[in-house]
Design a protein around this nucleic acid. Structure first.
Lengths: 203, 203
DNA sequence: TAAATTAGCGCACACTTGTAAGCTGAAAGT
DNA sequence: ACTTTCAGCTTACAAGTGTGCGCTAATTTA
C-alpha cells in the first residue's frame, strides 16, 4: 500500500519542481527534463516512471493551474454572496490570485500563445469555462439574452486576463491602480451591453 | 561602398531566416543561433558579426514587427478617411494584418508574456503606442475627456489584441465570425464610455 | 600600390540535452 | 516463503548547443 503513496509523492515532487523552476525569467519550454529531475531530487531517467515527456507534464500543470482558477471563481462567488460590489469583488479576488499564484498564471498566459496546439487548447478550455460561468451569472442577474450575455462575458474575461498579464510583474501599488482602471472598463462593457440590448428592443 | 551594402544584405538574411523559422510550432526562444545561421546560409560564428546574440536579434525583430503594426494603423486611417464605419474598418484592417503577418504578430504576442524583461518592455511600448494613437483619435472625435478616452482606448486595444491572438490560427470563416463579435464588443465599450461620461456630467 | 580593415569560415572545445539498456532492492501478491 | 512488480539508479551515447581562436580573401583607406 505504501508503494502507490510514495509514487504519488514523487510525482508531486516533480510537479512542484517544475513549478518552482518557472519564474518571470524561465518558461516551461526552456526548462529541461534533467533540470526538473535535479530539482525534484531524482535521476533523469526516473522522470519517465511518471510522465511520458515534458509536454505530458506540462499538460498536467496546465490542468492544475486551471483548477486553481476555478477555485478562485468559487471563492469570488462566496465573497459576492456576502455582499459588496460584484465587479469590484471579482477583480480584487482575481488580482489576489494572480499575486499568490504568479507562476500558475504565467503558465496559462504563456501557453495560451505557445507553440503546442495541445497546450493552447487546454488553456483555451479553461478560459472558455470561465466565460461560460460568467455568461450564466450575467443572464441570471441582468435578464440579458444569452447571445449578448455571452459577448459581454467574453469581453470582460478577456479584459481581466489581459489586465492580469500586465499586473503580474507590477508593484502592489501599480497593481491597485490597474485594478481601478479595469473596474471602470468592465463597467463600460456592462453598461454598453445593456444599452445595446434595450436599443434593440426599442426597434 | 559595396562592403556596407553586402553586410546589410546578410543582416537582413539573418532576420528573414529567423522570421521564417518561426511558426505556430516554433517560438523564437526555441530556435538556435546555429539554426538561424544555417537558414541564412552563413557559418554559425558569422552571426556574431551582426548581432551580439539571439536576444539582440530578437529585440530588432520586435521593433520590426512594431513598425509593421504602425504601418497598419496608418493604412487603417487612410481607409477610414475614404469613408466607412470606423470600428469595422479598423477591425478588418487589423485582421488582415494578423493573417498577412502571422509570424510578426505571433512574435509580439509571445514576447508580451515572455521570459525577457527587455522583450516585454519592447512589446509593451508598441502596444502603448497603439493605445495613445487611439486615445488621440477618440478625444478628437467624441469630445470625451482624456482620462476616459484613454480608458476606452486601452480596453479596445486589449480586446483587439486578444481577439487577434485567437484569430491567428483560425480559418478565414471562423475569423470573420470572431471579427463580428469583436465589433459588437467594441461598440459596448464605446457606448459605455460615452454613457459613463454623460452620467458624470449630469452629477 | 601598400596597408589596414573586416565579413565570413573552419576547427575545436566544453557542455547540456533526451533517452535507451539493464540492474537493484524493496514492496505487494500469491 | 516465493515470486512478481516496479520506482529509482547508474552508465552510456549520439546529437546538438554557444562561442573562442585564428585564417583568408576581398574591399576600403591612405
Amino acid at each position: 500500500m505504501n508503494r502507490k503513496e510514495q509514487k504519488l509523492r514523487t510525482r508531486q515532487a516533480i510537479m512542484d519542481a517544475a513549478f518552482s523552476l518557472m519564474s518571470d525569467q524561465r518558461s516551461l519550454a526552456s526548462i529541461s527534463l534533467r533540470e526538473v529531475a535535479r530539482e525534484a531530487g531524482i535521476a533523469p531517467t526516473s522522470f519517465y516512471r511518471h510522465f511520458k515527456d515534458m509536454d505530458d507534464l506540462g499538460l498536467v500543470l496546465v490542468d492544475e493551474a486551471g483548477l486553481a482558477l476555478r477555485q478562485l471563481m468559487r471563492q469570488a462567488r462566496v465573497r459576492i454572496a456576502h455582499g459588496g460590489d460584484v465587479i469590484r469583488v471579482s477583480v480584487d479576488t482575481f488580482m489576489e490570485f494572480v499575486a499568490a499564484n504568479a507562476n500558475a498564471f504565467r503558465l496559462l498566459l504563456r501557453e495560451r500563445s505557445g507553440t503546442s496546439t495541445a497546450f493552447r487548447e487546454a488553456v483555451s478550455r479553461e478560459i472558455k469555462h470561465f466565460i461560460e460561468e460568467l455568461t450564466d451569472y450575467v443572464t441570471r442577474h441582468t435578464g440579458l439574452p444569452p447571445d449578448i450575455a455571452y459577448l459581454q462575458a467574453e469581453a470582460m474575461v478577456k479584459l481581466v486576463f489581459s489586465a492580469g498579464a500586465e499586473a503580474i510583474d507590477l508593484s502592489a501599488k501599480k497593481r491597485k491602480e490597474l485594478a481601478e482602471r479595469l473596474i471602470v472598463q468592465l463597467r463600460f462593457i456592462g453598461f454598453g451591453a445593456a444599452a445595446h440590448h434595450s436599443s434593440r428592443v426599442a426597434d
